[in-house]
Design a protein around this nucleic acid. Structure first.
Lengths: 339, 339
DNA sequence: TTGTAGGCGTTATCAG
DNA sequence: CTGATAACGCCTACAA
């Protein structure tokens, strides 16, 4: 109601107020050490009283940096938001860039609407990109990574991307840990609800499950696929229970907590006791895992740290520094009540 | 590895290639009608072959517009992502701006970390802002709305903000509809799990519930508060069942589907049948509502449309056009199995 | 209908 | 240590 934006003060005005030149004012703003203390003080004072803020556009134009990072999500909005795992990753990302001057540009590029994102990324609108929840079919990203630095959440699946940066956990090993726990507590008919076959996490966790069973001399035949959603977990659980060849399962390794929650509700609905009749192990250790009525035993992956690490890697890259291409964070089994 | 960005082509080069001046090239790019067809064609061709994309920073600098919109979320990341309702709203928002040239800047301004967002919004870094999931305590936003156009998702609670733009549903009426449904099916001991008292949606829905009960001559005493999370719903349900004054409830109006899911799992865990013993009505009609083992009867609010409407309102505002300050979308009761 | 020229707010390269 | 002076890429009167 009162203060209509009084056309933001410019560097010029700050300089005038401080009695120096634009250049000098610019120097103190950018933290040059080559400025006398007295001048620094007066410029700072001028900035303070004028409430000066550098103009982003002008800055970008002058130094060829956008100070923006794209958060690319090649996924349906609903699925992305529905999974607490992503919430944690994004949380980590925002933490990671919080102390930088970069802003996050949200690029929801669900199936079918990738065009705009591609043009955006290629158009020099951002200095770098963070990719979360990508699929095999998202190969268009590979070509972009040659234009702007890019860090993936999870190993990219395309072979063109052998030289890309990513942070991940060892999904195979994690799944093996979870499955081994089931073996260790004496289960022998261990089924799995695997993730989608077009995502690395889906593929690798499925493999970790089957190889562990093989190593234990157990059959790896009881398998159903979900899509990492709660409803998908329920559907998969039903198909497992309704199939003669897998209905006798006494344990279940589920590739994500969200699907595990769905699976458990089906189990309960059918009067199957957890863990007595069927022991359940999930994957993620997302917040839901601890709050289900039967707390979920799960393979923990440090989602928030993964997000932070993605951010810091990209930031380093943007500083022109060399960075390890791959960062694998550890998983661990968190034992609760379900197995 | 191969193609290092070959310093994007500029308007200058396009003009040269087309054999015209910068100004003319600029005109065809900005769709001026005052250009001869022949010239338009040749400039378009040049743009095509050079794969030209206007430089955002330069454009911003020249016309004093950032072409960016902030998506402000004064909420903990986890809660924001955890609620499918927000997923739908954001989905609508991205749809709404998809066909514009605006970019979405994600501003996760959880409790405690609002400083950066405030400076960002005030610093002229965006042309407008969309606010989702705000609380009473987020009064700092009011001052910002005097600087940049701002559209809220849901009625702002502060009285300073009487002149603000928002899209919402009539939460009171919606809650009344849902509660009335419970009354209509003959329930008399109708409890509620209300939302937080520092959010308009929480306050209004609680009021809709109590006023409907009063009108029906029923007591509005059985109440517990949740925080719109699944775990919060579980906690509230337990406190309701454990309190002598409310344990006898035969129906439940829950202020959000997510909390309703939590409540229902507690109900089942205690062997209470739905809807036979306790009828349950939720609020949102989010995707989870249809996929619970007992499909949830709920008050539908058109979340996606709300997001789209927010976007279109802001876009209109940015075009300098007048817009109705308030847009209230309709709610309706979706009857499924739980009540 | 088209071209010229100046300016948007910073940074960077020079001299001094 | 400080100050001119060019860019940076685009838009827009104004003039032709």
């Amino acid at each position: 109601m009162t203060a209509v934006r009084p056309s933001a003060p410019t560097l010029e005005e700050v300089a005038a107020a401080a009695g120096v030149s634009r250049s000098t004012a610019s120097r103190v703003i950018n933290g040059s050490t080559q400025v006398s203390d007295a001048v620094v003080a007066s410029v700072r004072a001028a900035i303070e009283t004028l409430n000066y803020m550098p103009n982003r556009a002008a800055r970008s134009l002058a130094n060829q940096k956008t100070m923006a990072i794209a958060l690319v999500v090649p996924e349906e909005t609903m699925r992305f938001f529905g999974d607490p795992y992503f919430a944690s990753v994004v949380d980590g990302i925002t933490r990671g860039i919080a102390h930088s001057d970069y802003v996050l540009n949200l690029q929801l590029a669900g199936p079918g609407s990738t065009e705009k994102t591609i043009r955006y990324l290629n158009g020099g609108n951002v200095d770098g990109a963070l990719v979360v929840s990508h699929h095999i079919s998202d190969s268009y990203l590979a070509s972009i990574s040659q234009i702007v630095p890019m860090v993936y959440n999870g190993r990219p699946v395309n072979r063109h991307e052998v030289d890309s940066y990513y942070v991940d956990v060892d999904n195979t090993a994690g799944a093996a840990q979870g499955t081994q726990h089931l073996v260790d507590i004496g289960r022998t008919r261990i089924a799995t609800i695997a993730g989608p076959a077009d995502m690395p996490a889906g593929i690798d966790r499925s493999f970790g499950w089957s190889s562990t069973l093989s190593a234990a001399g157990l059959p790896a035949t009881r398998i159903a696929h979900g899509d990492f959603t709660l409803a998908g977990g329920e559907r998969a659980m039903r198909s497992l229970l309704d199939s003669p060849s897998s209905a006798d399962l006494d344990a279940l390794f589920v590739a994500s907590d969200l699907m595990a929650v769905g699976a458990m509700s089906v189990l309960r609905e059918r009067g199957i006791r957890i863990p007595t009749d069927v022991a359940v192990v999930g994957f993620d250790d997302s917040p839901v895992a601890a709050t289900t009525s039967i707390p979920l035993t799960t393979v923990r992956q440090p989602a928030t740290e993964m997000g932070e690490k993605m951010a810091s890697m990209l930031l380093e890259l943007l500083r022109g520094r060399a960075v390890e291409q791959v960062c694998i964070l550890p998983t661990s089994v968190v034992v609760r009540a379900s197995a």
